[in-house]
Design a protein around this nucleic acid. Structure first.
Length: 172
DNA sequence: GCCAACGTTGGC
DNA sequence: GCCAACGTTGGC
């Protein structure tokens, strides 16, 4: 049996890498690299799977918000920026054999018609419990429940772009 | 710009 | 293993 799709929230400072930047990548695909936090690393390496849904969140701006959707198109593999002395994310501990840091590839799916702000989320019965709202939470890769994913879509007025119609096909 | 919260480092 | 110091994150 196929693994259930899971959902994640990925934070990015738009001044560094925005949803628009992702959209403009070839095929809308870009490695999610440079993450240098062990808890987030573990999620990138072990938990995010191909086909998983991603809420793209803009942080560290005047109106932090979920601004769009993406999907995981390649599962955890070594983050080569850690091996590159020229990279801002270079880590001398990393080697080919022990990469230390991992990344996934994500693909742009769509922008939300309007950003869903923290205030929007706080006021929503399902979204109010999202990790991203918790004080002091700095984790840049966070799990999102299916209910939260659907609530975001519902607020945005979108159909689930990752829904697999064949799953609901009537047999016989 | 402020500052609370957190993760990491390193001396002991 | 403890914990103080430090750097970073990120909302406000």
């Amino acid at each position: 049996m196929q693994r259930e799709i899971k959902y994640w929230l990925l934070k990015s400072e738009p001044g560094c890498f925005s949803l628009q930047d992702l959209k403009e990548c070839p095929d809308g695909i870009e490695p999610w690299d440079g993450v240098r936090n062990f808890q987030a690393r573990n999620l990138l390496r072990d938990a995010l799977k191909q086909g998983d849904g991603v809420l793209f969140y803009h942080s560290n701006i005047s109106q932090p918000a979920v601004v769009g959707l993406a999907r995981v198109v390649r599962e955890g593999y070594p983050d080569a920026t850690a091996l590159d002395p020229e990279s801002a994310h270079f880590d001398p501990r990393a080697t080919e054999k022990t990469p230390v840091w991992y990344r996934v590839d994500v693909q742009y799916v769509c922008s939300l018609p309007a950003p869903i702000t923290r205030q929007d989320m706080r006021c929503h019965p399902v979204l109010a419990s999202m990790d991203v709202l918790k004080k002091g939470n700095r984790l840049s890769v966070q799990p999102v429940t299916r209910q939260q994913w659907q609530a975001i879509l519902s607020l945005a007025g979108l159909q689930d772009p990752l829904a697999d119609c064949s799953r609901h096909a009537v047999q016989g």
